[in-house]
């Protein structure tokens, strides 16, 4: 589904990704781990199309076609969802309004008609109930005044509504207490499907106690230095990231 080959990128004058390759198949859950500054979030942003990042080499294919040619909104409509590490606040813009506009943009892209307002509300309420979210959130400004946990739940709600083919969740666990973490993890697990791939970007192993990955990759210095199954995450937890850095430089 997602094929990244020898990807290189920079932001400003700083090179971040140095020939990263990764292959994600449909139905799989991948975890990308690595120390701060290793390029984890950059990878997520480059795949989503953030314009601060300049791709200087390599390619990214999504279901066989060149993803790098597309604008961020086109990638989104093709089914790529980025769960943000720091979801931005958009004051005055109603949460429901954004959600509906996003759902309709995608439906239009798929040649479907706009979603009926009642149908939309019913669907949103259902998904919110499943995530343990208060329906009042629909009428608040996008992420405006939300707590850290609320923002992350809101990201998962958007994911649930948009039904992406590929979801990249960037540090979805950061800043959450254990209850919020569980709720978010349950939400993600509920969205695991054979026709969907999920990439979890995380610094800590603890998220993986709740969402079990098929593959774990360790990122260091802008490339993947080790790949393995979930036991790699435990090994990492035990030995720390210095071990990876040594392995990378060896």
């Amino acid at each position: 589904m997602l094929e990244i080959k020898n990807l290189q990128s920079r932001i400003g004058d700083t090179e971040i990704l140095h020939g990263l390759s990764l292959s994600v198949n449909v139905g799989e859950v991948h975890a990308i781990m690595g120390p701060n500054g290793s390029g984890k979030s950059t990878l997520a942003q480059v795949v989503a199309g953030h314009e601060d990042h300049v791709v200087t080499g390599g390619e990214v294919l999504f279901n066989g076609s060149d993803l790098l040619q597309l604008a961020p909104e086109e990638r989104a409509r093709e089914g790529i969802f980025l769960g943000f590490q720091y979801p931005v606040e958009i004051p005055g813009v109603n949460n429901a309004y954004l959600l509906k506009a996003a759902v309709n943009a995608k439906r239009q892209h798929q040649g479907l008609g706009e979603i009926d307002a009642f149908e939309f509300l019913k669907l949103a309420r259902e998904k919110m109930a499943a995530l343990g979210m208060d329906p009042k959130f629909l009428n608040r400004g996008v992420n405006e005044g939300f707590s850290g946990g609320e923002k992350k739940r809101n990201e998962i709600l958007q994911m649930a509504m948009l039904e992406p083919k590929l979801a990249i969740l960037d540090e979805t666990d950061s800043g959450l207490d254990i209850d919020a973490l569980k709720a978010v993890a349950e939400g993600v697990n509920a969205l695991r499907r054979p026709d969907r791939a999920i990439v979890l970007v995380t610094h800590y192993q603890r998220l993986l106690d709740y969402i079990e990955p098929d593959h774990v990759h360790v990122l260091s210095g802008g490339r993947i230095v080790r790949s393995g199954d979930k036991s790699l995450a435990l090994e990492l937890e035990e030995k720390g990231y210095d071990w990876v850095r040594e392995a990378a430089s060896a």
Binding site: A48, G49, H50, E51, A71, P72, E73, R75, A76, R77, F81, L82, F84, P87, V88, I90, L98, A101, A102, A105, K106, H109, Q158, L162
Partner: peptide, 10 residues
């Protein structure tokens, strides 16, 4: 970027 990532045009 946030809005565009959700599929909404600029």
């Amino acid at each position: 970027f946030y809005c565009r990532q959700r599929g909404i045009s600029e």
